[in-house]
Design a protein around this nucleic acid. Sequence first.
DNA 1: CATTATGTATTTGTATACAGTATATAACTA
DNA 2: TAGTTATATACTGTATACAAATACATAATG
Lengths: 222, 222
Amino acid sequence: MEYKFNISVNEYLPLREVVFNNLRDAILSGELKPGERLLENHLAEKLGVSRTPVREALRMLEQENLVSLVPRKGAQVLDLSAKDIKNVLEIRAALEEVGIRHACRYMPDEDLKKLKLYNELFEKGFQDKDYNAVAINDEKFHDIIFASAQNDRLVQIINNMRAQVYRYRMAYLKVFETRTAIINHHRGILEAIENKDEEFGAKTMNDHIEHQVQVILKSLSK
Amino acid sequence: MEYKFNISVNEYLPLREVVFNNLRDAILSGELKPGERLLENHLAEKLGVSRTPVREALRMLEQENLVSLVPRKGAQVLDLSAKDIKNVLEIRAALEEVGIRHACRYMPDEDLKKLKLYNELFEKGFQDKDYNAVAINDEKFHDIIFASAQNDRLVQIINNMRAQVYRYRMAYLKVFETRTAIINHHRGILEAIENKDEEFGAKTMNDHIEHQVQVILKSLSK
DNA sequence: CATTATGTATTTGTATACAGTATATAACTA
DNA sequence: TAGTTATATACTGTATACAAATACATAATG
């Protein structure tokens, strides 16, 4: 039987956080679709809480750029234009570059080992056509890299940018032609970190994300 | 007599926005000091509103990294460590680099003219020891540069990073030795834009912000 | 004197009520 | 029929009430 230690210090989550997480997941998973209206009453009822925490959660989601709020009109799931996607990924590229540069200058062996492991699982995912595994291990791969900047705000912002384009992620990974490109990018990044070649790392990371932009935009235009 | 057209479409500001702006200004101006507790009742009373909009404003300020919230304990003005300052400015540097690269590739003449004007006023401010003018024109100078990326989210994030270290701004500009360095950075940036020399622009911008980090940290350690 | 109980006052969390604004529907006019 | 106005309905904005947790002051204990 499994136990969880009672971390107790803060097992408590305010309802606004619960609502926030719920809505966030629903938006990211696509359960709530872009443009869809978010009615406070409906949400409150559905989640079994009052409007108060729902409203607070909506303010938080607005600040996260996941919903748009118009005073007296209400909230709706934010819809992204092609330009929005470019903008989001442009920011992500700039910040991932910060991450990879730190990683190249100094990454503990332990992290490098993890990085290699996740990359293997990542490549294996492609072989097995298990795109869920691909996505998860891709995420972990990048997580480790930008965590090495030891900059919480950087992590927060990258994650936020990632969340905004989350819904295109699977489609992106499943485009067959991208496969070798992505794999090569990852290998290049690993190589850069091992050789402490900051410039090569930065360049590869930028290519990696620019590539993503192109594929997503192309798939959108169809 | 001056008129303002009644843009009407949205002259209305929800109280949460009013409260948000008020608190934001109070924090940035230093009226509310780092670490200071923010009691919902007090704020509500002081601003003549109920707790509801105050609470919503606090959630927004939390997402902006201006206040920290602990469930059931309350809110307080966020205090920054030396590391926080480094982190904030590291992000700002990365994103201003995106801006300056765009500016170097293409900036309309009109904007370049404005940029030169603000830089003159900026330098004049130093001569006149009018540090308020220095600060304002420095802000406008940077505004124009990163606006040229035409990326709203980028602007939003840079402004947010700027807000977080806003309180060190004046002290920074008033350190006498920094004067020539800052002026030279700005001139270099202008030169880079005129010559469309992206690499030089990026390098100078990075130096500019790195310099700011050093000066602020030094002044803090005293 | 320091430390731990204990009770009270504050403070946050959440639900609810009501006012005012937007939106949908129906009735009316050209 | 199309377009306008009237009316009802739904929704957001704000204030308030009450419950639950926390902080603080005071008393009790070693």
